[in-house]
Nucleic acid binder design. Structure first.
Lengths: 201, 201
DNA sequence: TTATTACGATACGATACTGTTTCGTAATTT
DNA sequence: AAATTACGAAACAGTATCGTATCGTAATAA
């Protein structure tokens, strides 16, 4: 029912144009942000007619949602055998994604829309954060089994706190150290209480 | 050298108009956000001519910065004699400010500008967060003196972590409990590690 | 009173984007 | 070959905002 079934007559939609549109959308989103970005600018950069975009998407929201969707990365579940090594991997992973212009603008979009309509925030939560939150639960579970953590802690709450700290560091970048180092230090503070008493360092 | 020295000839600028402009700016900022907000709309709502605004401010950024500046609240330093009571007060205070539409839009503005130009983020940091960060250091210092906390902890880092958690909860509001309750729970997790061993609850 | 500045209103040209339509051409199915 | 659909380009009317300029009026200082 997918590619093999080419029953529609007429010229098919160009996959090349489609890719170009998504690419241009992401680039502009990162450069100027959602509000400032115009359909005209997207079509110009993609080298396609405005019509081609309007034929595919009926709103900018729809287009951007699809563009972001198209680059969704696989969820990583680190398993180094040690909690802090796992966390370091997560930090590096988060750094790559969220320190990019696109990452910043995505976050900005979510927040500004969060007050009036919660569309983007909902989508982002469900499609991006939720799976990672669940993957993180596995990491925590392993740490508990290795006796690195207290067993009664809420992994979801830990994930949220970690995310919050990272988000804050994204907006107000540390002056005297790198983002990763700063986040690592903050998470260490967070986990001090989460660690078993035997694991004081 | 201020009001008493009325040496300039001609009609003075209307303080009433000035107030109306700032008020309208804040209202619209909360309602539609920075990008969507037009000078025309502000002047219309304030009941003043566009000219009057352009005479005072040369850019929207300048106007908004002044408007936000005008409602800057005094820094609160709670001193209840108990760390958790102090923190509860801070949470309630933060809830009032940041859960409002204006608070949300302010945060959104800072984040979206953080990537291209860091103007707002810088201003917000210097004028808003920095003083509160320092005030919080006092709260922590008192807690240390009461022996409620380890003495070697970095109060700035704790403040940043708290802010991050609050920010995250602002964007992705908890579904099953109130914002304040959720934040309180997260901060409890954070402070578990910060508390002295004798103060396990 | 006179000079000076601010006021609100309105008009202005300029720019930019919207979403639609029309056009001749290209690609694909039947 | 014929029918059908998509393509990019261009023109379109409509809307919105920009920042400036001009107006007659109001308020204040010298």
């Amino acid at each position: 029912m997918s590619k093999t079934n080419k029953k529609t007559p007429g010229r098919p939609r160009s996959a090349k144009s489609h890719q170009a549109i998504l690419r241009a959308t992401l680039e502009l989103l990162g450069e100027v942000g959602f509000d400032t970005m115009s359909i005209e600018a997207i079509s110009a950069r993609a080298g396609v007619g405005k019509t081609t975009i309007y034929r595919r998407y009926s709103s900018k929201e729809e287009l951007v949602a699809d563009a972001i969707e198209s680059i969704r990365q696989d969820v990583v579940i680190p398993d180094t055998g040690n909690l802090w090594s796992d966390i370091d991997e997560l930090i590096e992973n988060a750094a790559q994604i969220s320190l990019s212009p696109l990452g910043r603008q995505t976050v900005a979009m979510i927040i500004s829309s969060a007050s009036s309509n919660s569309q983007f925030a909902q989508i982002y939560w469900t499609k991006y954060l939720q799976p990672r939150r669940e993957a993180f639960a596995v990491v925590i579970e392993r740490a508990k089994m290795r006796n690195e953590m207290q067993t009664d802690l809420d992994s979801g709450l830990i994930f949220d706190s970690m995310s919050g700290i990272m988000l804050y560091a994204l907006i107000f970048p540390p002056q005297t150290e790198s983002w990763s180092e700063y986040v690592r230090r903050a998470l260490h503070l967070l986990f001090q209480g989460a660690l078993s008493q035997s694991q004081s360092e």
